[in-house]
Design a protein around this nucleic acid. Sequence first.
DNA 1: AAGTCTACCGACCGATCGGTAGACTGCCTC
DNA 2: GAGGCAGTCTACCGATCGGTCGGTAGACTT
Lengths: 202, 202
Amino acid sequence: MKTNPSLPTADRLLEAAESLFAQKGFYGASIRDIAQCLSIAKSSLLHHYPSKEKLYGEVLNKIALEMTEEVRRIRQSVNDEREQLRQFIRLLWENSQNKPNRENIIIREMLDNPKRADKVKKWFFVDYLNELTGIIRSGQARGIFKPVVPEVFIFQLLGAHRYVVISMPTVKQFFPAETYKKVVSEHTRELEAFVGERLFVK
Amino acid sequence: MKTNPSLPTADRLLEAAESLFAQKGFYGASIRDIAQCLSIAKSSLLHHYPSKEKLYGEVLNKIALEMTEEVRRIRQSVNDEREQLRQFIRLLWENSQNKPNRENIIIREMLDNPKRADKVKKWFFVDYLNELTGIIRSGQARGIFKPVVPEVFIFQLLGAHRYVVISMPTVKQFFPAETYKKVVSEHTRELEAFVGERLFVK
DNA sequence: AAGTCTACCGACCGATCGGTAGACTGCCTC
DNA sequence: GAGGCAGTCTACCGATCGGTCGGTAGACTT
C-alpha cells in the first residue's frame, strides 16, 4: 500500500487506514500495519490519532462527508429528479472504479455497526441517505415518480449496486472470464433499467 | 449465545461458530469465545475442528449446502419459473428472519474472500448461484423472461435483499420507528415488483 | 538562550490470539 | 481386566494485539 508522500502525515494515515480497513475490516487491520504503510512507527500513528477507534471513525467520517457532498452537487446541478438519479448511478459506478475501498468499508460498517454503535450519537451516513431519499420524495411530489417507499427503494438500489461491486473479485475468480465481462458491462445498464421501470412514471 | 444441548458437540460448535462469525467476522471472533458458548475449553473445540480456518470452512460449507438444497427443492416442486422466483423471494425473506446469521456470513465471506481464496479450489456458493441463474435461463428459453444477463440479475436481486437485511439494525437505530416499519413491510413487495417489471414478459 | 511545540522513536506493558502437549476420564471391545 | 479411543481438561507456547511511556531532534517564539 502506497500513499501520496506530498500530503501531511495525518492525511496519508487516513489513506492507508481506509485501504487496510477496507481489505481486512476493523479487527483484521492492525495499526502497526497502517503505520508501516508510511514507514513510521506505530506510536507515531497514535500521536496523530489517539486510538484505533478514533482513526476508524475519521476514515468513516471523511468518506461520508465526501459522498454526501457528491450527491448534493448533483441535486444542485440539475433540476429533473430523473436526471439526478441517472447521474447518481453513473457516480456510483465511477466511484466503484476510482475509490473501490468505499463500498467495502461501508458494508463492513453496516455489519459491525450494531456492536459499536452505542457510542455514536449520529450515524455517519444519515445525511447521505437523507439526500438520496430526498430526491425520491421530490420526484414523487412532482408526480414523476411512482409511490414507492423512498427508504426501501434507495436501500435496494444501493444494495443491488454494492453487492455486485463487492462480488466482482469472486466472480472473476470462480466464473468464466466471459461471465465477468458481461457483469461489468451490463451492471449499470440494468441499474438504470431498474430505476426506469420501477420508479419513473411512464 | 445459546446452542441446542441435545445436539452432538461438533454440531453445537458449528451453531455457535456461525453466530459469532456472523456477528464479528473471521478475525473478530475467537475460538475461545466460540468454545465458551458451550462452556467447554478451547482445546476441546480444537479436538473437533483442527483449526479456526477449518471450522470457518465447515460453517460456510454447511450454509452453502443448505441454501443450494432449498433452491433445488423449489425448482422441483413447481414448474413455472415465475412462481419459482416468487417462492425464492419468500424463501429469502423467511431465512432472513429465521436464520439471520446467513446473510451476514455470506457478505463477510465475499469481502474477505479475495485474501483467503487462493487456498480454496471451488467456492462454496458456486452451486447455489448456478441453480439461481438456471431458473433465469430456463425461463428465458421458454420465452417468459426478458433477455437480461442472468448473473447480473441474480446478483442485483440478492444484493437488493441482503443489503436491506444487513441494514435493518442500523435503520432501526438511526431512523424513525415508522421508517423501520415501512422498510420491513414493503421490502419483499418491492422485490417482487422488481422481478415482475424487470424480468417477466408481460 | 531558554522555552515550547510538533513529530517521531524504541522499549515496554498486559491482554489476547491460535495452536500444542500431556494427562485424565469414561466407554466400548476384545 | 487390558487396551484403545473419544472427549475433555489444565498448562503452556510464541506471536501479535492496542496502547503507554520517556525521551529526542528540530523548528519556531520570545
